[in-house]
């Protein structure tokens, strides 16, 4: 064995002991009871309709957040790849600067905007789009908009990285061979940018499915997500078995996203 290989031991050892091992212990705890292994906790967890509603809401919000972020990020990445000089600076600053504003303050800023007497309602009334204030805070739409805002840079940057490398001559070549713009987009541009889309979507989805601060400030306890249920069961209810069970379910979702996205990335890489 090469001596250089040993240099990996501190970092990988650290992650094995302080990341992998604790998670495995959590999983082990969620299936063990006083009298041996048992899935009873899971059975009663999934039998409870409230829990199922929380899981579906969490997945739905994460999917909608990812979709909204993707719809905004995809064209933006193309505009960024064509931008030069000060315009490029504007785009790049817009991606990085919001990260310096903590998620607590960002979510709170959105909750100010979404209030019934908040600026967003005033603006919409002024534009004549609505007649009287509508309830926005505490709605799922508000949560999706706020979450997409926070996670947007993590969607734009991977797509931008791919679009920037895109050989502009390929769509042009397709055009010179008579391909229509639609055909070119779906058969040349989109497949070539798909690795960025997969990377950005997987990252955004995994952040959105486990977000805690944003929903607690924008929708509150009335519409719980899985993370809020975890925090509640550990910090307030002191119900560790319940908390461990939801944690294991959320962990399974996150691992599935990591595994599926790395399989998809490998397939896309092999095809090109």
């Amino acid at each position: 064995m090469n001596r250089i290989t040993l240099l990996a031991v501190p970092a990988l050892g650290f992650l094995a002991i302080l990341y992998a091992l604790p998670l495995l212990m959590l999983l082990a705890k969620s299936v063990s009871t006083a009298d041996g292994l048992s899935l009873a906790e899971y059975r009663s967890f999934f039998a409870d309709e409230h829990n199922m509603r929380v899981i579906w809401r969490t997945l739905r919000v994460a999917a909608l957040t990812t979709l909204l972020a993707l719809v905004i990020a995809y064209p933006t990445a193309f505009a960024m790849s064509r931008a030069k000089g000060p315009w490029l600076t504007v785009y790049l600053v817009a991606m990085v600067l919001p990260m310096s504003l903590g998620v607590v303050v960002k979510a709170f800023a959105w909750s100010i905007l979404f209030r019934a007497n908040g600026a967003l309602n005033d603006a919409l009334q002024w534009l004549g789009l609505i007649e009287r204030p509508v309830r926005m805070l505490f709605t799922e739409t508000a949560l999706v908009v706020g979450a997409a805002n926070v996670f947007l840079p993590f969607m734009v940057l991977p797509i931008y990285a791919v679009v920037r490398q895109l050989d502009a001559r390929l769509p042009e070549a397709a055009a010179s061979l008579g391909a229509t713009p639609m055909f070119r987009f779906f058969n040349v541009t989109l497949p070539l940018t798909l690795p960025g889309v997969v990377a950005g979507s997987a990252f955004t989805f995994s952040l959105a499915v486990s977000m805690y601060v944003i929903p607690s400030l924008i929708v509150g306890e009335r519409q719980q997500t899985m993370s809020m249920l975890i925090a509640r069961s550990f910090l307030y209810l002191r119900n560790e078995p319940l908390g461990s069970t939801i944690s294991a379910v959320l962990l399974a979702i996150a691992v599935a996203v990591v595994v599926l996205s790395s399989i998809a990335a490998r397939r896309l890489g092999a095809r090109q």
Binding site: L23, M25, L26, S210, Y212, S247, L251, A254, S262
Partner: peptide, 26 residues
């Protein structure tokens, strides 16, 4: 190895937090 080392970025923070809390207690 690369996937493992980068994976904490995509794991739910609260779950990692709970797991660490229980581990440190242990």
């Amino acid at each position: 190895i690369a996937t493992f080392a980068v994976s904490p970025l995509m794991m739910p923070g609260l779950v990692v937090g709970v797991a660490l809390l229980q581990f440190f207690r242990e």
